[in-house]
Computed example of a mutant assay.
Amino acid sequence: MTLTLRRVYHVTAFSWYAFVVKSLAAKDGEELPPGIFVYGGPWKYLTFLNLLLQMSFFGLAALNDLHLEKKSETTLSKWKDLLFSVFAFPVGMFVVLLFWSIFAFDRELVYPASIDAFFPPWMNHAMHTFVLPVLLGEVMVQPHVYPQTKHALAALGVVGLAYLSWIIWVYLSVGIWVYPLLGHFSTAGLGGFFVFNMSVVTLFYLLGDKLNSHVWTEFHSRKESKRG
């Protein structure tokens, strides 16, 4: 894909996520269903944190596209690749898969019907659906350099533990689970659910690595064939 099209894609994606984040943040302070924004506001939801993550990645990608100094561009490129490969792709895919899996089973466990009156359908899909095609589009737009798997998984593990600690702190502080589903687990069950979730995120990291390699190996192979 040409640099111009890549720039357009990154700027468009960044602008979209900035709009969604602004729209969601504007809900803070409105008369919402009890407990939604109590203690921590939207910052306790993985969905909102993922939106910030996606916005940060595409902002960095757009900046990298526009930067002219080669040395700085290389540094930006390394951070861009790290952010996408280790966090943006696996976490974004995880949010989409887990949300809709639980929603299909019993939406009250993750997105109670009472929320529909405050968050229109487009916002729900912006948070939980459109993330997937945008990420797959990024895989097609440009290749990414992946770090060593052990380092990537260690970073994911640290971030996962940090988020688990945060939602437990919220519960201990106000007695409300960030997601109703968590209230159905025992302490051991909560630990098992966390391990399961981290396993899924790990699989998405490996999937991203495989997709990146496959798409861009095929791309370079076709280019070489045309030259020959």
Score class of each variant (00 low, 15 high):
Asn64Pro: 00
Ser56Ala: 14
Met55Gly: 02
Trp79Pro: 02
Glu73Phe: 04
Lys70Leu: 11
Glu73Cys: 12
Ala62Trp: 04
Leu51Ala: 09
Leu49Ile: 14
Leu46Val: 00
Gly59Leu: 02
Leu51Ser: 01
Ser77Thr: 10
Phe48Trp: 15
Leu63Lys: 02
Asn50Glu: 04
Gly59Tyr: 03
Ala61Met: 03
Leu49Trp: 08
Lys70Gln: 08
Phe57Gln: 05
Tyr45Met: 08
Tyr39Asp: 08
Trp79Gln: 01
Lys70Thr: 15
Leu53Arg: 07
Leu52Asn: 07
Leu76Pro: 02
Phe57Pro: 06
Ser77Ala: 10
Trp43Gly: 00
Thr75Ile: 15
Leu49Val: 09
Leu76Gln: 07
Leu63Cys: 06
Ala62Val: 11
Tyr45Val: 05
Ser72His: 11
Ser77Pro: 03
Gly59Thr: 06
Met55Thr: 07
Gly59Val: 09
Leu49Thr: 10
Lys78Ser: 12
Phe58Lys: 01
Met55Ala: 10
Leu53Ile: 02
Tyr39Asn: 11
Asn50Met: 08
Leu49Cys: 09
Leu66Cys: 10
Ala62Glu: 04
Lys44Gln: 09
Gly41Thr: 02
Glu69Tyr: 03
Gly41Glu: 04
Tyr39Gln: 14
Thr74His: 13
Lys71Arg: 13
Leu66Gln: 11
Trp43Phe: 15
Leu49Ala: 00
Leu51Pro: 01
Leu46Gly: 03
Leu68Pro: 00
Asp65Gly: 09
Gly41Met: 01
Ser77Arg: 15
Val38Asp: 11
Leu76Gly: 05
Trp43Gln: 00
Leu68Glu: 15
Leu68His: 14
Thr75Lys: 14
Phe58Leu: 07
Phe48Glu: 04
Thr47Asp: 06
Trp43Ile: 00
Leu68Val: 12
Leu46Lys: 00
Ser77Leu: 15
Leu51Phe: 12
Val38Glu: 12
Trp79Arg: 06
Lys71Thr: 15
Phe48Val: 11
Gly41Lys: 05
Leu66Lys: 00
Leu49Phe: 00
Lys71Val: 14
Val38Lys: 15
Leu63Glu: 02
Leu49Pro: 01
Leu49Glu: 01
Leu52Asp: 00
Thr74Phe: 15
Ala61Phe: 00
